[in-house]
Design a protein around this nucleic acid. Sequence first.
DNA 1: CCGTATTTGTACGTATGTATT
DNA 2: CAATACATACGTACAAATACG
Lengths: 235, 235
Amino acid sequence: MSAKQRKLPLYEQIKNKMLMKINHGDWTPGENIPSESQLMERFNVSRTTIRQALRDLAHQGIIETRRGAPSRVSISPKGKPRSQGVFHHEMGNEMTVKVLRTGVVTNYEALRRLNLGKSEQVFFLERLRLADRKPIAYQQLFLPFEIGKVVKDYAEIEFDIFPKLGREDIHYSTIKEQVNAAVATQYEADLLGIFPGEPLVDIDRLTLGIEGSPIEYSRTKYRTDSFHYKVEIGG
Amino acid sequence: MSAKQRKLPLYEQIKNKMLMKINHGDWTPGENIPSESQLMERFNVSRTTIRQALRDLAHQGIIETRRGAPSRVSISPKGKPRSQGVFHHEMGNEMTVKVLRTGVVTNYEALRRLNLGKSEQVFFLERLRLADRKPIAYQQLFLPFEIGKVVKDYAEIEFDIFPKLGREDIHYSTIKEQVNAAVATQYEADLLGIFPGEPLVDIDRLTLGIEGSPIEYSRTKYRTDSFHYKVEIGG
DNA sequence: CCGTATTTGTACGTATGTATT
DNA sequence: CAATACATACGTACAAATACG
C-alpha cells in the first residue's frame, strides 16, 4: 500500500485497487468480479465498506450489479473511456506517433499546471500524431520528471502513453480538458501539411493521478479536417 | 413493521418524499434541510436508510452535503441542470442577446439534422450573444416550425431559450455537441469586433427532446478570448 | 480565540429479503 | 428446491469538519 493512500478512507483505497485491477486487465470487461464476501476476506474489511466502494464504481458505470447475480466489469467500447459515455474522440485507422524532440526543461506554465516549484524541471516531449501516416496533430507534452523517465522510450513508438503508465502502476483518476481554437503558425503548418492561418482545435489537457496530483499536462493542436471532438450531455 | 404492503424500498419512498418537498417549495434551493437525526425521527427509520436517500440525492446533485455542516438543497437553475457536472461553460456577468435576423427558411443541413423532409421549413434565428455588452458569439439557430413560433418573441430578449421552452412543456433530454475550430470571415469579424482570420470556436449543437426527436439545431462561433469550453472526465 | 456541541463521514456488526444461478 | 449473491434495513461507535457561544 502506497504511503499516500493511507490517509484515504478505506473504501476509497479499495476503489482505487479495484480500478487498478481493471486498468491492468486483471479484471476484464464482461468478466465477473469476486463476490462481496470474497472481497471482504481479501481486503479484510466489513461488507459495508466493500459495498460503498462497489456502489461508487457502479454509479460511475465502471461495474454493473444485479441482485442475485455476480457483479461484473462493464463492457465499455475501448480500454479507456469508462466516463459515463459523455465524451468521444473520432480518429483514423492506423494511429502512430513521431517524436520530434525530447528533453528536460523549465517551462513556467507547465510547472504551474503540474503543481511544481518554479525551480523544478519537467520532462518535455514534442510529438506529431499521425492517422494513417498523415499528420493530424502537433502535441507538446509535459510530465513530472519522475514519470517522464518511465515513458521516455515508450513515447517514441506508442500513440498513447497511458497503457505504459498503467503497467508501471501509475493510474489516472481525472482528466480536465479545455478546448479552444487557434490558427496555425508557419512552424505548425509545415508540420501538419497545411497553410499558416488555417484553424486548429487546441486542447489543453491536465491529467490527475489517483491521489489527485497532476501526472501529465499537454497541449495539442489538431487539424480540423481529421478530428472531431464530441460531447453528449444527458441521455 | 409490516413490510408486505410496500413496493418501493424505504429509502426510495423517503427520497420521493424529499423530492416532493423540494418541488413544492417546502425546501427551497440554498436552504438547509433537517439534520439526519431529525429525519430519522420524522420518518421513523434508521440513519442508514436516511443516509442512503440523502446520498442518492447528493449524487444527483439535488442536495449538497458537507462534513460538519448541515446539508442543503442545491442552488441549481431548476428545471433541467443535473447533468452530472461533467461539462462546463464559462462566461461573463451580464449575458444578453441581440437578434440580427429571423425568418422561415429551407436550409438543407438544418432539415437533415432536425430529421425533417426536404420540402419542409424551419424557423431561423440569427443572433449575437453578448457578455457585458461585448459580443462574444455569433449564432445561427434552427428550430422546427412548431417550436419556433413558441420562442419567436422570447428569443429577442433572452439569452437562453430553454427556460421558455420549459414553461411551454417542451423539455430536452440530450444535447449533442461537436466542437471545431474556424477562422472568422469578414462578416463574422465585423459582428464580433475582431479581425478576419482570427480563430473562433465553432460549436455544432443538436438538442433532442424527451421523445428523442430533435428540437433545436444550432451553430455558434465564439470568440476565443471570452469563452472557455471545459470537459472533466472521471473524478 | 477556544472549547463544545452539532452534523456529516467512515466503519463495524447483524439480520432478513429477494432475484439469480 | 437449494445455494449463492446482491439489496435493504436495523443498530452502534468513533472520526472529522463545521458552527456557535
